[in-house]
Simulated assay, not measured.
Amino acid sequence: MTLGKTQTDRAALCRGRLEAFVVRARRVEAHSLAADWDALVTLADAPYTVTARGNGEAHVRQEYPAEEVVESAAARVRPLLLEGDACSYLKALAAVGYFCRNRPHDTQWVKAARAEWRTRTDPNAPREGGYQVMIGDDAEGWTAELDDRKLATAWIYGDVVHHDTDLLEEADPFGLSERFRAAVPLVASVMVMAIELLNYIRALHTDSLLGLPAELFEREVVLTSTCWEQVMRVFAAPVGTPAPADALSPFSEH
């Protein structure tokens, strides 16, 4: 069957978005937080332990990775959160939906993945889980409250990958620690969803449904070594001697 020009253009657009997503998602997959899949999934659920102390009191403990580690993960997932970026999670998901539009099972998976993404990442989306932080000052008589998604967003876009002054001003009364505590499960959940979508794309690619280049899944996306050793020829010339015009041009004999 020959596709019309509109369909061909649409397929090319979707394929380009999938290629951009695969490169970014593989970089997310290569992050140290994703080395232990079970631990990453657990982190996405904001784990904590509660120890009863009696008299109606309980000790609650949460232990997360170092901020620097989560910060580097946040930098890797940030483009997936931005719908305007080429590698946006939602753009990639829509592209999968396009190629699988005649496959009911895949269409249902895409729909469920989109709903989960919105619930976890959109600060204004309704949801049943999460928590609310309320603070106040008896002496000055002020109160404030924010939910975990807005606190997490403030850490990502205020403390880390941008310096959004509006977000920081709103979340500042809660402190850096509270913002970070809220952000860790969000960053982990975005990593989980991105890697799950990446694996889904891999399966569809194996079934020859997407037409993606095979090298896309093999090309280098992270550095495994930051030590460089090279053997090279050394040339010396008087100051002012012009450099070669390009890499294939010989050095001047003068």
Results as ranks from 00 to 15, higher is better:
residue 164 D to N: 10
residue 144 A to L: 10
residue 133 V to G: 02
residue 151 L to I: 07
residue 139 A to M: 11
residue 149 R to N: 03
residue 150 K to L: 14
residue 157 Y to F: 15
residue 164 D to L: 02
residue 171 A to S: 15
residue 132 Q to Y: 13
residue 162 H to V: 00
residue 134 M to D: 14
residue 157 Y to I: 06
residue 151 L to H: 05
residue 143 T to G: 08
residue 153 T to Q: 15
residue 140 E to G: 03
residue 141 G to W: 11
residue 164 D to W: 03
residue 154 A to S: 07
residue 142 W to P: 01
residue 164 D to H: 03
residue 159 D to A: 09
residue 167 L to Q: 07
residue 146 L to Q: 12
residue 158 G to I: 04
residue 165 T to S: 15
residue 146 L to T: 08
residue 135 I to F: 07
residue 133 V to S: 10
residue 144 A to V: 07
residue 161 V to I: 14
residue 153 T to A: 13
residue 149 R to Y: 01
residue 154 A to P: 04
residue 165 T to F: 12
residue 168 L to F: 00
residue 161 V to T: 09
residue 164 D to E: 08
residue 132 Q to I: 15
residue 157 Y to P: 02
residue 164 D to M: 07
residue 168 L to R: 01
residue 149 R to P: 03
residue 147 D to K: 08
residue 150 K to N: 14
residue 150 K to Y: 08
residue 143 T to H: 06
residue 140 E to R: 07
residue 131 Y to A: 12
residue 134 M to R: 15
residue 170 E to K: 11
residue 137 D to A: 08
residue 136 G to Y: 10
residue 132 Q to D: 15
residue 164 D to R: 01
residue 152 A to Q: 01
residue 155 W to I: 01
residue 132 Q to S: 13
residue 156 I to P: 00
residue 137 D to K: 04
residue 163 H to M: 08
residue 162 H to T: 10
residue 137 D to S: 09
residue 149 R to F: 02
residue 142 W to Y: 03
residue 138 D to S: 10
residue 169 E to H: 09
residue 149 R to S: 05
residue 139 A to N: 11
residue 161 V to G: 04
residue 158 G to Q: 02
residue 157 Y to G: 12
residue 141 G to T: 08
residue 148 D to F: 00
residue 145 E to C: 02
residue 136 G to V: 10
residue 149 R to T: 04
residue 159 D to L: 06
